[in-house]
Computed example of a mutant assay.
Amino acid sequence: MTSPTPPRRLRAVRVLARLQRMLEFANAGVTIPQYRMLAVLSEGGERSARLAQRLAVRKPTLTALADGLIAAGYAERCGEPGDRRIVRLQLTDAGRTALARADEAYQDALAPLLGRMADADQLIDGLADAGDVLDEWLRGRVSAAAEKEVR
């Protein structure tokens, strides 16, 4: 007896989980959490609290990730001009190189799958759209958290 096909959204969730697993096996030189942090840092330096919110991780997790990237020479902590209490994380040149290498490795890992799809561009466009919506949603969460801090 065969089991019924899961609803499309559930199937999509399961596919995303499988795709993540494919990326985990890619020889990217960094872990997926490190990659996510490098990608966010490539957009400009961030304070740790804001970075934790953008990555949807707790501050201790962020600190551990940051410490690993700093130890590898991929990121550095920099003071804020005019306010020594503020510390930002920024990519180093080695971090930019590591990110570019990981970008390529992850794209290469997905290439055989995308090459077999009838319309890979549709998937890519859909994921890019989902990324835009996710970014907007996370910005809203960060703004709401900042408002709470002000109160």
Rank of each mutant, 00 (worst) to 15 (best):
A98D: 07
G115E: 10
A56H: 08
G131V: 08
G44F: 02
R88W: 03
T61C: 01
E76F: 01
G29F: 03
D67K: 15
L65K: 04
Q34A: 04
D132C: 05
P112T: 07
R18T: 07
A120N: 13
L41F: 10
D125I: 04
S42L: 02
R85Q: 04
L19Q: 15
G126S: 14
L91R: 02
R84D: 01
A94G: 02
V57N: 14
D132G: 10
S48A: 14
A28R: 07
M117V: 09
P60R: 03
A17G: 06
R85V: 01
R36M: 03
C78R: 10
R58A: 05
I86F: 00
R21E: 12
A102V: 10
S143A: 15
A100L: 14
R116C: 11
R141L: 13
P81W: 00
N27L: 06
D129T: 13
Q90S: 02
D103W: 08
A94S: 06
I86G: 00
A100E: 15
G29R: 04
D129A: 09
L99H: 11
R21V: 03
A128G: 03
E149P: 05
D135F: 06
S143K: 12
E80N: 05
R141I: 07
E147T: 02
L55Q: 05
R58V: 03
P60W: 02
L127G: 08
M117G: 05
I70D: 07
L65D: 08
R50D: 01
L134I: 10
D121Y: 07
P60N: 01
A98M: 09
L23A: 12
P112R: 09
E104C: 10
G126M: 09
R116E: 15
G115K: 15
F25T: 14
V30E: 08
Y74Q: 07
E24M: 08
V57C: 13
R54P: 01
L113Q: 05
N27K: 09
L55E: 06
A49C: 04
G82P: 03
S48R: 08
E136Q: 13
R85D: 01
D108N: 14
A100F: 09
L65G: 03
R101D: 13
I124G: 09
D67M: 09
L89D: 03
V142Q: 07
A146D: 12
Y106C: 05
T97S: 06
G29E: 06
D108M: 12
A64E: 08
D135Y: 11
V142Y: 09
L19D: 11
D135A: 12
M117Q: 15
A39S: 11
A118N: 02
I124T: 15
S143H: 12
A105K: 14
R21N: 03
D125A: 15
E136N: 07
L134V: 05
L38D: 06
P60V: 01
